[in-house]
Design a protein around this nucleic acid. Structure first.
Length: 425
RNA sequence: GUAGAUGUAGCUCAAUGGUGAGAGCGCUGGACUGUGGCUCCAGAGGUUGCGGGUUCGAGCCCCGUCAUCUACCCCA
């Protein structure tokens, strides 16, 4: 019988990491609340069609990365690979367009993609994100971007860069693509094999190829900024104007494209050098055509998604081993003998009711071993109870930092420990 | 889907094709019948990922397979 391991591309979060996760999630919630976003929780699985239509048939996500299966009712179900399409689905399904606009929501939850795992890439990972629906105001694009930045700033993270681009709309993007194809087709033989494929499927991707020769050719190509239609150009100027009004630093980058079909106009990424090849902490953009694509009323929207695991990675690198010595409990009660142990059990539970975290030995260990254990747990105060103490109606309270011990009558013990603990905290 | 690297104790790693596969850390116990950290002693813990092959003999060489890591494609 072989041992069952976690499936490929999944992880257990447990050593010191949960603390970073909690801090991150709390920060996301408070920053979002502060900016007027309310939480939305959508299902972890949806009808496969939602992603086929929303994310796009030609995308890698839909083409080869979805966890899709038939349920017992023969429905095709897919574990959500991303959060935007489900949120837009919920917006349409609950007729949120009939209420006050814009609708600003945020989410935190697991996403699933069937990929080969590597640094910063898992099959189940967690994203937080926001979506703002019902307005095409460029100020809203800037609002969304500012939330993303604020989360990392609030966490004290440094060294991230925001990259910004516009990929136009259904009017100007096809024209630009056509232009690229014309310009590149005479150099087809010089492109790498990937780019030759890209030229047919998504010419914009040639712009951010890592191949040296392709980069040279890409440099000669005109940036998309020069080819935006009047509407898109004006919108883009609006976004940069609002970012600058907040003093937010960004880098214009005509090479960023995005892997999902629904993006229009604004697209952006936030990257960090400590992440390896997958250097994006998060990314997003505007998706003015998505609601209609899903069969609903036309509704503009803008949002982003960011990876929790990736943020945890850079945060824990930054923190180093600083947060190692946190203890789980305030007071450990070491006891010898059946009667003392029963007394210790009572005291432990009485302490917990007072808000003092406390625990006892469950392995019938010697006093020495119990002390050793308490020390390993970084407990600040140990209470010692044996026959002598029971007979004398007191307990020994030991301060583990100084080694000082005092005798405290059982009658005062709870109160003394409670006071002690608040002082030590 | 493709490529490379790596699989030996709980962890990090040793071991020219040759005796019974070792060390450090960790864990448990003891020296100290009732007092942690330091020190010393002892103990537990291994199908060398799995399956074949070559060989008198394989942890080591060969083939296959699985897993992990990193990278490509692409993305959080």
């Amino acid at each position: 019988m072989t041992f069952i391991r976690a499936p490929r591309g999944t992880i257990d979060v447990f050593p010191e990491r949960p603390e970073i996760w909690q801090r991150l999630e709390e920060t996301v919630r408070s920053v979002c609340r502060n900016a007027g976003y309310t939480e939305i929780r959508t299902p972890v699985f949806e009808h496969t069609e939602l992603f086929q239509r929303g994310v796009g048939e030609g995308t890698d996500i839909v083409e080869k990365e979805m966890y899709t299966f038939l349920d017992k009712g023969e429905r095709s179900i897919t574990l959500r690979p991303e959060g935007t399409a489900p949120v837009v689905r919920a917006y349409l399904e609950h007729k949120m367009w009939a209420g006050p606009q814009p609708v600003k929501v945020y989410y935190i939850g697991p996403m699933f993609r069937y990929e080969r795992p590597q640094l910063g890439r898992l099959r189940q990972h967690t994203q937080f994100g926001v979506e703002a629906l019902g307005s095409s105001d460029p100020a809203l694009d800037a609002d969304v971007i500012s939330v993303l930045i604020s989360v990392y700033q609030s966490l004290g993270l440094e060294g991230f860069v925001v990259r910004l681009n516009s990929i136009g709309c259904s009017v100007c993007r096809p024209r630009y693509k056509e232009n690229l194809i014309n310009l590149l087709s005479k150099d087809v033989d010089e492109l790498c094999s990937d780019c030759r494929r890209r030229l047919e499927r998504n010419p914009l991707r040639v712009l951010d190829c890592k191949n040296e020769r392709c980069k040279e050719l890409a440099k000669k190509l005109p940036p998309i900024f020069d080819h935006l239609c009047e509407d898109c150009a004006r919108h883009f100027r609006g976004v940069t104007k609002h970012l600058e009004a907040l003093g937010l630093v960004y880098k214009l980058d005509p090479t960023i494209v995005r892997g999902l079909d629904y993006y229009t106009k604004t697209v952006f990424e936030i990257i960090h050098s400590g992440l390896g090849a997958q250097d994006a902490l998060g990314g997003g953009g505007r998706y003015d055509g998505l609601a209609e694509e899903l069969g609903g009323t036309a509704t503009p929207g803008v949002g982003f998604a960011a990876g929790i695991e990736r943020a945890v990675q850079v945060l824990s690198d930054a923190a180093g081993e600083a947060c190692e010595d946190a203890s789980n409990i305030d007071v450990f009660i070491a006891a010898m003998g059946d009667e003392s142990k029963l007394q210790a059990f009572r005291i432990t539970h009485a302490l917990r009711k007072k808000g003092v975290s406390s625990d006892i030995d469950y392995l019938d260990r010697s006093l020495r071993a119990q002390m050793k254990y308490a020390n390993k747990q970084n407990v600040k105060t140990v209470v010692i109870i044996g026959e002598d103490e029971l007979a004398g109606d007191y307990a020994i309270v030991r301060d583990m930092a100084t080694g000082e011990q005092t005798q405290v009558p059982f009658g005062n013990l709870i109160q003394v420990l409670a006071q002690n603990t608040t002082l030590l905290r």
